[in-house]
Design a protein around this nucleic acid. Structure first.
Length: 482
DNA sequence: TTTTGAGTTGTTCGA
DNA sequence: GTCGAACAACTCAAA
């Protein structure tokens, strides 16, 4: 009598409801991580997340070994892997935490059906969200499409349920079950090893997640409502990659925010709660719109003439657009696997509006390079910026990269850090080096077009071109507006 | 059923 | 330099 517990995107032992339920049976527990990149519709993990998963699994394996039941690693299609393990161990039950992505849901539904048909126990528990996406409904019974009403419903909902503790101990199965070797999975980059910057910034794993939460609450929650928009310096929670891998849950975070003695004003806490709310909203949208990552949420955008050419898009990816705030963001992303939220909006607006590149190109790049790449947030946010999404920004809202830089990075600390060739530019010109007089450029050691690019597009021209493109798309698509 | 109020994050222009 | 309006309707969600 053994219980299999499947780990997928829930690399933790605390507030792991499937693990807790399995431990409560009092029978042997076999924890299994399944790397499934072959089931239909499954999206291969991006490079940055592969690096993260490698280290997070290392941490999880240590925690489970300490509890008494070592983690088993298997690779392959979920259903086949589970069937194989059931046959191998004679397990009578399989427990897991629910997934909410379309492919995962389909696989798990099939798995549950097939296990139960054969008389096995198959149980799923609440997964990575504070509230099940199917639970929050409008008065009319439908899903939400606008954030504010969703957020009101979210806040009116009781709970979420309290987090559950990690099991104190686990019994292993009687006979040892073979595990694949993590190193055989080759999740780490080799040639070139681009992950050094990631290792310097992040501590993957559940302990790292707990520490990130505590340091955020102690050091950065006070003042968060205002400081969160400043990309230079550490002002945000930095919890996103831990959430993306299930090393911590929204239940745990919300519970910590409710502790009485913590720092931060009610406004700070509310602001941060809302950020978690946006994550929940994105999953709500994806749950009810399975093709959110590939199709325009607003289908009127199907007529939009994306013409962004590849040299410009390549310059965007490499942080060589000539707009310092954009380049700083793209280089922060490449080096650390993460980008400040404010800057994500600026670079996304730049790609879709200044360069007229399809938001799906940006979504794909972020998927590959972000350690916090989240299927729902990534898709919903790209569409929001592009204008095609739910409750999206009006199309005429085109970020001016110079003004955004000067407003949120006034002394240029963020740009200086990530774009070192501009480090000596005075604040007055750091966000607009092409306007600097020759002697200023000379003293800063900047040669435009040599040490730092001239802007790939002119802001004013690009803005007009984007507005015109929206007009065209609107005309082409019957009378429906874009 | 119809009506009503409202909608994350901005920019530009002219008074 | 500051401020308010315009940008463009559309559709969501609830009364």
């Amino acid at each position: 009598m053994t219980t299999l517990v499947l780990f997928r995107h829930d690399l933790r032992i605390a507030d792991n409801r499937a693990l807790a339920a399995a431990a409560a049976r009092g029978a042997p527990v076999l924890p299994v991580f399944v790397l499934d990149e072959v089931s239909p519709g499954t999206r291969r993990l991006g490079g940055a997340r592969r690096w993260w998963v490698h280290h997070s699994l290392t941490a999880l394996a240590q925690d489970l070994a300490r509890l008494g039941s070592p983690l088993v690693l298997r690779r392959g299609a979920m259903a086949a892997v589970v069937d194989g393990l059931v046959a191998e161990t004679g397990a009578d039950a399989v427990f897991w935490n629910r997934r909410y992505d379309p492919a995962g849901r389909a696989v798990d539904a099939g798995l549950k059906e097939s296990l139960r048909r054969r008389g096995l126990v198959a149980e799923s528990s609440e997964g990575q969200l504070a509230h099940e996406p199917s639970r929050l409904r409008t008065a009319g019974g439908g899903p939400f499409r606008v954030f504010t009403p969703f957020w009101k419903a979210f806040c009116a909902e009781s709970g979420p349920r309290d987090p559950v503790d990690a099991p104190v101990a686990l019994f292993p199965p009687e006979s040892r079950v073979a595990s694949e070797a993590l190193s055989d999975w080759a999740l780490l980059p080799v040639k070139p090893d681009w992950a050094r910057g990631l290792a310097a910034r992040w501590t993957p794993g559940e302990a790292g997640a707990r520490k990130a939460l505590e340091s955020f609450i102690e050091d950065r929650l006070a003042g968060y409502a205002d400081s969160r928009d400043v990309p230079g310096g550490e002002t945000t929670s930095r919890l996103s990659p831990h959430l993306a891998h299930g090393e911590i849950t929204p239940r745990q975070i919300l519970a910590a925010l409710d502790r009485r003695e913590i720092a931060g004003s009610p406004a700070d806490r509310e602001k941060f709660r809302r950020e978690l709310g946006w994550r929940e909203f994105s999953w709500h949208l994806l749950f009810h719109n399975p093709d959110l990552g590939s199709q325009n949420f607003n289908r009127a955008f199907d007529a939009f003439p994306w013409t962004g050419d590849s040299p410009h898009v390549a310059a965007w990816r490499r942080g060589r657009t000539g707009y310092p705030i954009v380049d700083a963001g793209m280089r922060e992303l490449w080096r650390t696997g993460w980008m400040h939220n404010r800057v994500r909006m600026v670079v996304a607006s730049f790609l879709t509006k200044h360069l007229l590149a399809d938001w799906r190109q940006g979504e794909a790049w972020f998927w590959d390079t972000l350690v916090d790449a989240d299927l729902a947030s990534n898709a919903a946010s790209w569409q929001w910026v592009a204008g095609s999404g739910a409750d999206a920004a009006p199309y005429f809202r085109i970020f001016n990269p110079v003004l955004q830089g000067e407003k949120f990075d006034p002394d240029g600390a963020y740009v200086r850090h990530h774009v070192p060739e501009l480090a000596k530019m005075p604040p007055r010109f750091i966000h607009r080096p092409w306007e600097a007089p020759a002697d200023v450029l000379f003293r800063a050691g900047v040669k435009l077009g040599e040490t730092y690019p001239v802007p790939v597009v002119d802001h004013e021209q690009a803005r007009r071109r984007a507005l015109a493109a929206f007009e065209t798309a609107r005309g082409q698509h019957d009378d429906r507006s874009v």
